[in-house]
Computed example of a mutant assay.
Amino acid sequence: MAAHTVRWTQPAIVTATVDVSLDELTAWAIGAGGIRTLVDDDAAAADAAGLRQLLECNVRLRNELLTRWARAHLPR
């Protein structure tokens, strides 16, 4: 019997439970995550207190940054 090799690409759904505080997520996002803000049409470093407040009330932003944090910290 002949051996055959097949290869395909398929999407994967990954679920991760991570233990990270919003303060740690904020610091990571500003430092390693490249989060910036616009001040008078110029990019500037994000304000930690402002970003922390956004993470508390903006679920979509929080989930996006948590996903990026998990990708950066979980083993591959």
Rank of each mutant, 00 (worst) to 15 (best):
N63V: 01
A44Q: 13
L65K: 05
I13C: 06
R60E: 15
V18R: 01
T15Q: 08
A3Y: 11
H4S: 11
L38I: 12
A12Y: 07
V20M: 02
M1F: 09
A46H: 02
R76S: 12
H73C: 02
P75C: 01
R60Y: 12
M1K: 08
A32V: 00
L51W: 02
A44W: 06
A70I: 05
A70W: 02
A46I: 00
P75K: 03
S21Y: 08
G34W: 07
N58H: 13
V59N: 11
A45Y: 03
P11Q: 04
I13G: 00
V14T: 11
T9K: 06
D41A: 13
D40K: 15
E56G: 12
R62F: 07
E56R: 15
H4R: 14
A45K: 08
V14I: 11
E24K: 08
T17I: 07
A43D: 09
L66E: 09
L25V: 01
P75Q: 04
T67C: 07
V18F: 02
R60G: 13
L66W: 02
A3Q: 14
R36E: 15
L55K: 06
A16V: 11
I13E: 11
V18N: 00
L74Y: 08
R62H: 12
R68N: 07
L65V: 12
A48L: 04
D19P: 00
A48F: 03
L54T: 08
D23C: 03
A16R: 13
V14D: 06
D40L: 12
A3R: 13
A72Q: 00
L66C: 13
A16P: 00
G50Q: 07
G34H: 10
T15Y: 03
G34A: 08
R60C: 12
D19F: 05
A3W: 11
G34F: 09
L61V: 15
H73D: 07
L54Q: 15
A2V: 14
V39P: 01
